[in-house]
Design a protein around this nucleic acid. Sequence first.
DNA 1: CAGCATCCAGCTTGATACTG
DNA 2: CAGTATCAAGCTGGATGCTG
Lengths: 133, 133
Amino acid sequence: MDTSQERAAEQDLPFNVFAKACPSRGTLEHVTGRWGALTLGALHEGALRFNELRRRVDGVSEKMLSQTLHALERDGLVHREAQPTNPPRVDYELTPLGQEVATRLLGLIHFLEGRMDDVLAARERYDDTRGAR
Amino acid sequence: MDTSQERAAEQDLPFNVFAKACPSRGTLEHVTGRWGALTLGALHEGALRFNELRRRVDGVSEKMLSQTLHALERDGLVHREAQPTNPPRVDYELTPLGQEVATRLLGLIHFLEGRMDDVLAARERYDDTRGAR
DNA sequence: CAGCATCCAGCTTGATACTG
DNA sequence: CAGTATCAAGCTGGATGCTG
C-alpha cells in the first residue's frame, strides 16, 4: 500500500510525525496537547493577558498555563509582549504561523463540537452492547 | 470582544470545548492525544490489523494502542472487524465520521511537518536569547 | 496473531506559598 | 498582575506474563 509514511521516505521529506524520533512529533504534542489546543483556540480571537487566558481556558492551573505558553512561544506559535509597568501587563498573541495552526485546530474543534451528538450516540451503543463493564 | 465561547453561549450551542465539563473536551483529547492522532492518521490510508498499526505508529506499546483503539471505537471514529479464524484476524478502519476527523487532523499534521524548519529556527532563537537554561 | 491483567517507576498535574 | 518554586499524589505508560 502507498502510505504517507512510505511516501515521505521515498520523497526524502525531512519530517515525519510517525517516526518516533522526529521533532515534529513533539511540536504536534504541544499543539494538540490538553492545554495547548485550548490555549491556541482562545488566542485565535486576539491577544489576551495571562489571567484572561486562565479564565477562558476553564480548568487550567497557573502552572500548566505558564508551561504551555512557554512551549508555544519556544515553537514560534505565540508571541509574548511584556510591558514593564506597574502592575505588570503581559499580552500573548499568535504569530502568523500560530494563526494558521490555530485555524486548522479550530476547524477540527468546531467539527467535533458539531458532531458530538453522533459521538455520544456511538458511546451509548458501545456501552450497551458490551454491558458497560 | 466576540469570542467563540461567548458566541456558543449566545446561540445556545450545546457543546463547547472550552468548558471544563463539556464531553467534547474528552473526545478532543482522544482524537488529538499522543496516540489517538497518530492512530487516526495511520488508518486514514485504509484498514490495518493490530500489529500492522503497531509497526506503523512507531513507539506505541501494545497496551496504549489497545487502549487508544477502544476509546476511538467507543467514540464512533473507528470500526473493529474481527474474524473468528485461527489465527485470529482483526481489522481496524475508520468510520465515515472518523474519516472526516482524520482528514482534518492530517491537514494539521502535514502543515506542521512542512513548517518544522520555522519551528526549529524559532526554538534556536528562543534558546539563544534566554541562555538555554 | 490479538489481545488482557498486573505491577510499578516516573512524569504530569494541582495546591500552596512566595516574589517582583 | 504575572508569574516561579516546591512538594505530594495520582495517573500514564512500559514491561512482563498469560490466554484463546
